[in-house]
Design a protein around this nucleic acid. Sequence first.
DNA 1: GTCTATAAACAGATAGAC
DNA 2: GTCTATCTGTTTATAGAC
Lengths: 231, 231
Amino acid sequence: MFVAMTACPDPSRPDHPTAKALLDAGGELFGAHGFAGASTRALAEKAGVNIAAIAYHFGSKEGLREACGRETARIMAQDIVGARADALDAALAAGVTPAQARGMILDLFDAIAPAMLARADFEPVVRFLLREQDERSPAFERIHDGFIAPMHERLCRLWGAATGAAPDAPATRLSTLSVVAQIVYFRVARNVALKRMGWTRIGEEEAAQIAAVVRANLRAMLDAAAREARP
Amino acid sequence: MFVAMTACPDPSRPDHPTAKALLDAGGELFGAHGFAGASTRALAEKAGVNIAAIAYHFGSKEGLREACGRETARIMAQDIVGARADALDAALAAGVTPAQARGMILDLFDAIAPAMLARADFEPVVRFLLREQDERSPAFERIHDGFIAPMHERLCRLWGAATGAAPDAPATRLSTLSVVAQIVYFRVARNVALKRMGWTRIGEEEAAQIAAVVRANLRAMLDAAAREARP
DNA sequence: GTCTATAAACAGATAGAC
DNA sequence: GTCTATCTGTTTATAGAC
């Protein structure tokens, strides 16, 4: 009772059941049909709440979008890397051998690939992220600064430790992105991949096949980079 | 004067100036904002024509979308592969040595990468294609059957010829897709790449750096695949 | 073929009862 | 906090003059 209960009491509160339901619906519908393609009526119906709840809890449809961005950043940071981030930082600070660094990179992608590709609850998260980065929205800035940039930096440092290449060299920064690319592609161009592979979906089995190919590519790339840096 | 001039005289006629302007506007705005996000008013204004021209020339907004799909398929087949497709088919029919096949794959991506990444007029084309495949629209089916599938098949056959791997093996089909992935990523996640690389745009210079990394990855992958198939 | 005017549906946002 | 009802503007599509 310290502040008046005006509209939009707290934009970032996934604890409230109505707000939570709207955040889930937003992640799904914004991702599936884009911001313009998801009407407030469809969002409210999907969430099982009243249309006016959007304005009440998030101020506006745009407010809901931004709150979804915060949710996405939180989920990705928590579920994709989780405790791994601290372990990586500790290892990098303590120093790692090339073989250790190589193993850590391979392990990292072995963990990322199945989550990114097969986890059904990640579909809306990734789709939402891609839409936001496409529109250069403030929500994307948050996700970039909080999750993407730190992970890319760690990856470049590991890459340098594993191959002897300079972590800040453009080629290193591009190489690491090109590994991420191979996983992201099967999300983004999923319908192309499904048709080309004759699959009906990307489940655990299919994700494992993709992960195996990415792992093989990664090994080949690391070997080549190491030969390049330490002939 | 043989047929009555009802609405939508011919859905596929990029020759008419008004229809052409609408196709260009459609490719750009559908790609940028999605189908729902591009209003007929915005489309007409961008094209510099009257709103009613959409219904007249394409029957409806949906009709314009499908016509844009046909245009996209035509442009990609023409500008990305062009005469190269026939040359590849002839070479594959005549038979190629592993070294020749390897060179053809490298050449192919050397041609595709700069076009996909740096050509400004390709931005709307690629964006449109990705939106359509995401929505599994009939327009995408056309593009897949007419351009994507034939190119992927050729690539798999070349890959097999270069490495000794089976062209129809899932690993081969996934490997070739994972090379395409590395190029597509820098289009799709362009804003991520720009921020991570400290670039402001992907012009010829930046595209060349990406192409060099992809080329290096491709060599490493081909070497590894060849060792795997012919130890 | 191109235009204006408008119909009919739908959008997001809000006022106010409960 | 949640609801109904409604306001205001915009959407696509169309009818009809030129």
